[in-house]
Protein backbone atom coordinates (compact mmCIF):
# COMPACT_ATOMS: atom_id res chain seq x y z
CA UNK A 1 0.00 0.00 0.00
CA UNK A 2 1.44 3.39 -0.95
CA UNK A 3 2.29 5.71 1.92
CA UNK A 4 1.43 9.40 1.67
CA UNK A 5 3.05 12.03 3.86
CA UNK A 6 1.18 15.26 4.57
CA UNK A 7 3.21 18.20 5.89
CA UNK A 8 1.15 20.79 7.74
CA UNK A 9 2.00 24.52 7.64
CA UNK A 10 3.68 24.20 11.05
CA UNK A 11 5.90 21.39 9.75
CA UNK A 12 3.98 18.53 11.38
CA UNK A 13 4.21 15.39 9.26
CA UNK A 14 1.42 12.82 9.12
CA UNK A 15 2.11 9.55 7.34
CA UNK A 16 -0.83 7.45 6.18
CA UNK A 17 -1.35 4.41 4.00
CA UNK A 18 -4.02 3.95 1.37
CA UNK A 19 -4.96 1.42 -1.26
CA UNK A 20 -3.78 1.81 -4.83
CA UNK A 21 -6.54 3.56 -6.77
CA UNK A 22 -7.58 5.78 -3.88
CA UNK A 23 -6.96 9.50 -4.25
CA UNK A 24 -4.69 11.64 -2.08
CA UNK A 25 -7.87 13.30 -0.77
CA UNK A 26 -9.39 9.93 0.20
CA UNK A 27 -6.15 8.92 1.92
CA UNK A 28 -6.41 12.09 4.01
CA UNK A 29 -10.13 11.78 4.82
CA UNK A 30 -9.95 8.08 5.74
CA UNK A 31 -7.15 8.85 8.18
CA UNK A 32 -8.65 12.11 9.46
CA UNK A 33 -5.67 14.22 8.38
CA UNK A 34 -6.36 17.83 9.40
CA UNK A 35 -6.28 20.53 6.73
CA UNK A 36 -8.14 18.64 3.99
CA UNK A 37 -11.82 19.60 4.14
CA UNK A 38 -12.91 17.74 0.99
CA UNK A 39 -16.42 19.19 1.21
CA UNK A 40 -17.72 17.72 -2.04
CA UNK A 41 -16.31 14.23 -1.46
CA UNK A 42 -14.30 14.02 -4.66
CA UNK A 43 -16.80 15.37 -7.18
CA UNK A 44 -14.35 18.12 -8.20
CA UNK A 45 -16.99 20.66 -7.14
CA UNK A 46 -14.94 22.55 -4.58
CA UNK A 47 -11.29 23.30 -4.05
CA UNK A 48 -11.03 22.24 -0.43
CA UNK A 49 -8.53 19.41 -0.95
CA UNK A 50 -5.87 21.78 -2.28
CA UNK A 51 -2.33 20.48 -1.69
CA UNK A 52 1.15 21.31 -2.97
CA UNK A 53 3.21 18.42 -4.26
CA UNK A 54 6.83 18.35 -3.02
CA UNK A 55 9.27 19.06 -5.81
CA UNK A 56 10.80 15.56 -5.82
CA UNK A 57 7.37 14.01 -6.41
CA UNK A 58 6.10 16.44 -9.00
CA UNK A 59 7.39 14.42 -11.97
CA UNK A 60 5.42 11.44 -10.61
CA UNK A 61 2.08 13.21 -10.05
CA UNK A 62 2.40 15.55 -12.99
CA UNK A 63 0.91 19.05 -13.25
CA UNK A 64 -2.70 20.04 -12.63
CA UNK A 65 -5.31 19.46 -15.30
CA UNK A 66 -7.28 22.22 -17.04
CA UNK A 67 -10.19 21.62 -14.67
CA UNK A 68 -7.95 21.94 -11.62
CA UNK A 69 -6.47 25.08 -13.15
CA UNK A 70 -9.98 26.52 -13.43
CA UNK A 71 -10.75 25.52 -9.84
CA UNK A 72 -7.58 26.98 -8.32
CA UNK A 73 -6.85 29.79 -10.75
CA UNK A 74 -8.56 32.40 -8.56
CA UNK A 75 -5.69 32.22 -6.05
CA UNK A 76 -3.39 35.19 -6.66
CA UNK A 77 -0.18 33.40 -5.64
CA UNK A 78 -0.93 29.87 -6.79
CA UNK A 79 2.01 27.50 -6.44
CA UNK A 80 3.19 25.88 -9.65
CA UNK A 81 2.88 22.45 -7.97
CA UNK A 82 -0.58 23.07 -6.46
CA UNK A 83 -3.08 20.29 -7.17
CA UNK A 84 -6.44 19.05 -5.96
CA UNK A 85 -5.92 15.95 -3.84
CA UNK A 86 -9.02 14.29 -5.29
CA UNK A 87 -7.47 14.30 -8.75
CA UNK A 88 -4.28 12.40 -7.85
CA UNK A 89 -4.95 8.65 -7.86
CA UNK A 90 -2.37 6.63 -5.94
CA UNK A 91 -0.29 3.96 -7.67
CA UNK A 92 2.66 1.83 -6.48
CA UNK A 93 5.08 4.36 -7.90
CA UNK A 94 3.75 6.93 -5.44
CA UNK A 95 4.84 5.09 -2.28
CA UNK A 96 6.22 7.88 -0.07
CA UNK A 97 4.43 10.68 -1.93
CA UNK A 98 4.91 13.88 0.04
CA UNK A 99 2.57 16.85 -0.17
CA UNK A 100 2.23 20.11 1.74
CA UNK A 101 -0.99 21.63 2.98
CA UNK A 102 -1.79 25.26 2.11
CA UNK A 103 -2.33 27.88 4.83
CA UNK A 104 -6.08 27.28 4.65
CA UNK A 105 -8.67 25.68 2.42
CA UNK A 106 -11.00 28.44 1.39
Amino acid sequence: MPRVIFIDTDGTETEVQADVGKSVMEAAVENNVPGIDADCGGMCACATCHIIVEEAWFPVTGPRTDNEEAMLGFLPDLNERARLGCQIKLNEEMDGLTVRLPIGQF
Partner: peptide, 13 residues
Protein backbone atom coordinates in the same frame (compact mmCIF):
# COMPACT_ATOMS: atom_id res chain seq x y z
CA UNK B 1 -18.03 27.76 -14.73
CA UNK B 2 -15.65 26.49 -12.02
CA UNK B 3 -13.28 29.45 -12.36
CA UNK B 4 -16.10 31.95 -11.77
CA UNK B 5 -17.46 29.85 -8.91
CA UNK B 6 -14.26 29.57 -6.92
CA UNK B 7 -13.31 33.15 -7.64
CA UNK B 8 -16.71 34.30 -6.39
CA UNK B 9 -16.63 32.27 -3.21
CA UNK B 10 -13.30 33.86 -2.35
CA UNK B 11 -14.41 37.34 -3.45
CA UNK B 12 -17.65 37.20 -1.42
CA UNK B 13 -15.62 36.35 1.68
Amino acid sequence: APAEFNFSRDAIG
